[in-house]
C-alpha cells in the first residue's frame, strides 16, 4: 500500500501553523516514515503532483488569486483541513474587515503604495467546503498530530471542543476572572491550547476562536461588570478571530455603544 500523501498550502498568514508541523519533533521522522510529504514548500523543495489524501491549508484569502489556490486545494485533496485563526476565521488580518484597509496599510507599512491587498480577509471556508477546522494561533502541535494520526487510523480526531475553563480547572489554576477580576475569554473560547494563557496568569485572548454554543451575550455582560468599556469588549471579541460567527455577534452587541 502506498503511503498517504500530505499537502500543505499557504495563503495570507504568518506561517506559524506550518511551523508547528515542522515542530512535531521528536515524532517528525516517524511521520515521514508513515506519510509522504507531497507538497509543502516551506519544508521541502520536492513536489509530488496530486491528488493528495490530507491537505492542510493555512492562511486567509486576501487577494483574488488566492481563491484559485483554495479551489485547487479542494479539487486536489480528499480531506481538507483549514488551520489556524486565519484558516478558520480570517485571522488577525481580518481586522481590516471592520475598518478601512487604507488606514491599516498606512499604519502598518512604511511604503503602503507597495502593498497589494484586497478589502477583506476571508477564511477558505467562505469559498469551498472544509472538512475539518483546526483552530489556534498557532494550531496546537498535539491537535495537529491527533488529526494526522486519526486520518491514518481512519477514525475521528479527538479535539475536545469545550471551553478553555475545563482545561484551566484541570490544571488546578485559580480562576483569574473570579479571583483577580482579570478579563478572560476562557468561558467562550474553544480549548486546544491546554489553557496556556490562564496557566501563566493571563486572561484568555480567545485565539482558538469560539467554542460550540458560546454564550457571548453573558460573556459581554461579565466583561462589562469588570469595568471594560464597550469599545474594549468589541476589541476583545475581534482580536485574532474576528470572522468567527459567535465572536462577530459578541462584538456586534457592543459596537458603536457609548461608555
Amino acid at each position: 500500500m502506498s503511503k498517504p500523501k500530505i499537502a500543505v498550502y499557504k495563503l495570507a498568514s504568518c506561517s506559524g501553523c506550518q511551523l508547528q508541523l515542522v515542530n512535531l519533533e521528536p515524532e517528525l521522522l516517524d511521520l515521514v516514515g508513515e506519510v509522504e510529504i507531497a507538497y509543502f514548500p516551506m519544508a521541502s523543495r520536492k513536489t509530488v503532483p496530486g491528488p493528495y489524501d490530507i491537505c492542510f491549508i493555512e492562511g486567509s484569502i486576501t487577494r483574488e488569486e488566492e481563491v484559485e489556490v483554495v479551489k485547487k486545494a479542494r479539487e486536489d485533496c480528499r480531506v481538507l483541513v483549514a488551520m489556524g485563526a486565519c484558516g478558520t476565521a480570517g485571522g488577525p488580518q481580518g481586522l481590516k474587515n471592520w475598518a478601512r484597509v487604507e488606514d491599516f496599510k498606512e499604519r502598518v507599512y512604511q511604503r503602503p503604495d507597495w502593498i497589494r491587498t484586497g478589502e477583506k480577509s476571508l477564511s477558505p471556508g467562505e469559498k469551498v467546503k472544509i472538512d475539518l477546522y483546526l483552530p489556534g494561533c498557532p494550531v496546537s502541535r498535539d491537535q495537529l498530530k491527533e488529526v494526522i494520526v486519526a486520518a491514518l487510523l481512519g477514525r475521528k480526531p479527538y479535539l475536545g471542543d469545550w471551553p478553555v475553563c475545563v482545561q484551566c480547572k484541570m490544571n488546578n489554576n485559580v480562576c483569574l476572572l473570579v479571583a483577580s477580576k482579570t478579563p478572560c475569554l476562557g468561558p467562550v473560547t474553544r480549548t486546544g491550547c491546554g489553557a496556556l494563557c490562564p496557566t501563566w496568569g493571563r486572561g484568555c485572548y480567545g485565539c482558538f476562536g469560539p467554542c460550540e454554543d458560546a454564550n457571548v451575550a453573558s460573556m459581554g455582560r461579565i466583561l462589562r461588570d469588570l469595568g471594560l468599556s464597550p469599545e474594549e469588549i468589541v476589541r476583545r471579541f475581534r482580536h485574532v478571530t474576528s470572522g468567527a460567527e459567535a465572536f462577530r455577534e459578541g462584538a456586534k452587541l457592543y459596537e458603536g455603544q457609548q461608555d
Partner: peptide
C-alpha cells in the same frame, strides 16, 4: 456560559471523558 467551572470545582461531581493518544 456552559463553561463547567461549577462542575469542575464541585467536590462531588465525578463525570469524565476518555480518549486515546496514539503515536504516529
Amino acid at each position: 456560559l456552559g463553561c463547567a467551572n461549577c462542575t469542575s470545582v464541585c467536590p462531588t461531581c465525578f463525570c469524565y471523558d476518555a480518549y486515546d493518544v496514539v503515536n504516529v
